[in-house]
Amino acid sequence: MKHTNRRSLRTGLLNGPYLLWSAIFIVVPLFMIAYYAFTDSSGAFTWENIRMLTLYKETFAISLWYSLLATVITFIISFPFAYFMSRRSASAQRMMTLLIMLPMWMNLLIRTYSWMNILERNGIINNILGLIGLEPLKMIGTGGAVVLGMVYNYIPYMIIPIYTILVKMDPALLEAAEDLGASFLVKLRRIILPLSLPGILSGIIMVFVPSISTFYISQKLGGGKIMLIGDVIDRQIQTAYNYNLGASLSLVLMVFILLSMALLNRAGKDDNEDEGVMLI
């Protein structure tokens, strides 16, 4: 009895710093967001900030649509890529992993600026088009450019978790499926996809969450014409100094993200009863 007590005391002491850290940097800010969301500038309770949200229905819808689109496109590119990668020799795999991670060593801002340079009216693409006598294209300021920015910036977060699962998959399982009569498509649908589901789910979350809350990509590649929910929050806090509305927007975004994650997690568990799926 005494022994257990001492042990729990020790665990408590070991956990202490982390609990303190989470309290100061996670729990307290969350409460502050909630506090700001339900108060006005004088600190009195109000529903006003929540009511104001209806003004941003469309922004929410566009953010959702673009981030979903970006997630789907990212997945469609990443899965075959990760599969291809997992079938290469060990040295080729290391090289490819390095190449995927390399852009991530550069700052997001610089990467996005480069895309501005490429897509601008006087950018690289339009220069090339001009050289071969074609009309310049309008790319900056379109939804396409914003989605492209999301896909480009977040694709490593989709490829890596899927690749990690695929590379660990026992090749004998695929041979067994083939041996039992499965063509490549059947193998893909009944073995490869279901078994890589945990990786796919983490990939989806890791692309969807930053996409739906981004503001920088849409500011730069949206050319000021495309406002996402992140831009609105950014503007309320940085420009309008309306912390209260900013907080209520953040709160709703957060609740929305948590709900979609819970939903995904459920979907993952239904298919894979034995192992829960680790998200994030």
Binding site: A172, E175, A176, D179, S183, I191
Partner: peptide, 19 residues
């Protein structure tokens, strides 16, 4: 291809589908 041959295999570690 394997799926068109009249043979089946028992693998060393059985390779049962875990899902």
């Amino acid at each position: 291809p394997p799926y068109e041959r009249p043979v089946n295999t028992i693998f060393q570690r059985y390779a049962l589908f875990p899902h």
